[in-house]
Design a protein around this nucleic acid. Structure first.
Lengths: 132, 132
DNA sequence: TAAGATTGATAAGTCAATCTTA
DNA sequence: TAAGATTGACTTATCAATCTTA
């Protein structure tokens, strides 16, 4: 708990200081980036990011005000919306990724051997995939 | 980030549902439990728990209202207070630990081999200790 | 009626400013 | 003056209730 709290806090502070993006906003942007067409239904990233539906609504509102995301109607379901990463959002994300990669490198990559990194990756994958 | 978020969310919900304690409150209680005499200066657990000074003040206020912690004057420094785990706090913590252990077991212990658990422990220890 | 998403009320955290003692 | 701790203003999350469409 200490280790992960520290990494999340450092990521949050680093991203806020350099790019004005919280680590949760970063996580949603990354999730959009990895989605087909950089686009997801509102309810989908909530699962991955561990945010309640209302929490996601408000986070996307902020990203929309900051012109990083747009909300579009879902043509196949009138109840639903899609969040789409804008060009500006993509640029901000690219910059933020550099900062975030540096922080992760400082905590893990620089401190562990290649062997340990492989072990850690395998363990994370196993725990994560088992649960999905 | 996904894995960590999920474990913290599950711990938080599990502890709140069964014991009315958030995972951060649990973390502070554990920190007090591990301290000599179950007692720490206000500023000390903030470091470990990744909480701002004001955040810790408010969290300890809640624990005090719930009779799990008491605030005592520090005899050696008039500016400072000590948070002490009460008997009731110790009991609640003991119960909560059972719940928390179950959650951690569900995520890690049950899913990984003994070999993997040893590797993970070694990696965590290495990353944590390097940073202190 | 149920599902996707949002809104209002509330909880809990942060930063900046403040109070008290060293 | 600095350090330990707290308070006020604000941000961001949650839950429960609500609105709209399936």
């Amino acid at each position: 708990m200490s280790l992960y709290s520290r990494i999340m806090r450092d990521s949050d502070r680093g991203l806020l200081a350099s790019h004005g993006i919280s680590v949760r906003e970063f996580d949603v942007l990354i999730t959009l980036f990895n989605a087909p067409d950089h686009c997801l239904r509102m309810s989908e990233p909530a699962q991955r990011v561990m945010l309640s539906p209302s929490g996601l609504t408000r986070l996307v509102e902020r990203l929309e005000r900051a012109h990083m995301v747009e909300r579009q109607n879902d043509t196949t379901d009138g109840r639903s919306f899609r969040a789409v990463l804008t060009d500006q959002g993509l640029q901000r994300l690219d910059q933020a990724r550099t900062t975030h990669n540096g922080i992760i490198r400082g905590h893990f990559t620089d401190r562990l051997s290649e062997e340990e990194l492989r072990e850690l990756a395998a363990i994370w994958r196993k725990v994560l995939l088992d649960e999905c």
